[in-house]
């Protein structure tokens, strides 16, 4: 990338460009993948220079006045500052431990004085225990299949805020039956290899701090319930994001009922959704 382009990107991020230059940068950002990557790189460098006090007084002022003008950017720069501090410390600690272990004759001597066979014996015993317990669990699971309790636990875990989560391999936006109108349910086909399916349940309104979703599959006697889900902003408005394991989404019909948690702890029906999963 040419230096003049890099200079233009930095001026853009600092809000020091005219209308024509701004459009030029933005349009290329949207349409040219290489330029897109360069602009994001330029932004990282600019934030880095600010945090390391490498900006001129004028640029520093522009950075504070323009770039840090929104709470989102402010938080983002604070996170970058914290990450840099954390990562430098983590890296230093790792290096120190490595250097100590490599260079300290006493620690090397201590380590070498422990008989190697004891480590080997313990490792073999632990490995054998793990293999036996995993094999027994798998055999047992295969025989009985997942219980309702197992399924409920997995659904809760997948939708908990702490869940690191797998990237959904399939997703669909569902409108409430009342908004969608009577007629065929939306259809979903799940490709082999998909692990998680994301359902976005669009809410007709967002009146509650948390919601409960009951999931009724055609072939089940009773529904599974997930509670404590917050509404989030999506392109289709306020919605609940529901993640389901692909193995749970067998080919059949599904009905979802969303209820809102009221101040007195009771649940009030908000919307119903339907879905058909096809092979």
């Amino acid at each position: 990338m040419h230096d003049t382009q890099k200079f233009l990107m930095r001026r853009y991020l600092l809000g020091a460009v005219d209308e024509g230059e701004r459009e030029q940068v933005e349009e290329r950002f949207f349409l040219d993948p290489e330029y897109h990557a360069e602009l994001l790189g330029a932004e990282e460098d600019l934030v880095g220079d600010y945090l390391e006090n490498n900006l001129s007084a004028q640029d520093r002022n522009l950075f504070r006045r323009h770039y840090l003008a929104t709470p989102q950017k402010l938080q983002s720069v604070q996170l970058t500052a914290a990450l840099r501090r954390y990562c430098s410390t983590a890296e230093t600690e790792t290096t120190q431990v490595k250097v100590l272990a490599d260079s300290n004759p006493q620690s090397r001597a201590r380590l070498s004085s422990v008989p190697t066979w004891r480590f080997a014996y313990a490792a073999v015993a632990i490995a054998a225990l793990i293999i036996v317990s995993v094999t027994l669990t798998l055999v047992f699971r295969k025989q009985r299949g997942p219980t309702e309790g197992d399924i409920s636990r997995q659904l809760r875990e997948l939708n908990s805020p702490q869940s690191a989560g797998k990237t959904p391999g399939a997703s669909i936006v569902l409108l409430p039956v009342t908004l969608r109108g009577e007629g065929e349910s939306p259809n979903l086909s799940i490709r082999p290899g998909t692990e998680v399916v994301l359902l976005i349940l669009v809410l007709p309104r967002d009146d509650y701090p948390a919601y409960t979703i009951s999931i009724q599959r055609d072939n089940d006697a009773k529904p599974f319930t997930i509670d404590g889900l917050p509404a989030t902003n999506t392109a289709a408005g306020k919605a609940l994001s529901l993640k389901l394991p692909a193995w749970f989404m067998s080919s059949q019909g599904y009905a979802f009922e969303v209820k809102g948690l009221t101040a007195d702890g009771s649940l009030k029906s908000v919307a119903e959704y339907t879905l058909k999963v096809h092979p």
Binding site: L51, R64, R65, T70, L74, Q78, L79, A81, A82, Y86
Partner: peptide, 28 residues
Amino acid sequence: QAPLSDVAAYDPATPDENSALDLIYECL
């Protein structure tokens, strides 16, 4: 909106910012 006065702009050179950053750091 872009008024600097409305936003507590983060300045790594300002000691006052360190306490806010400390909490973020602990949480991080």
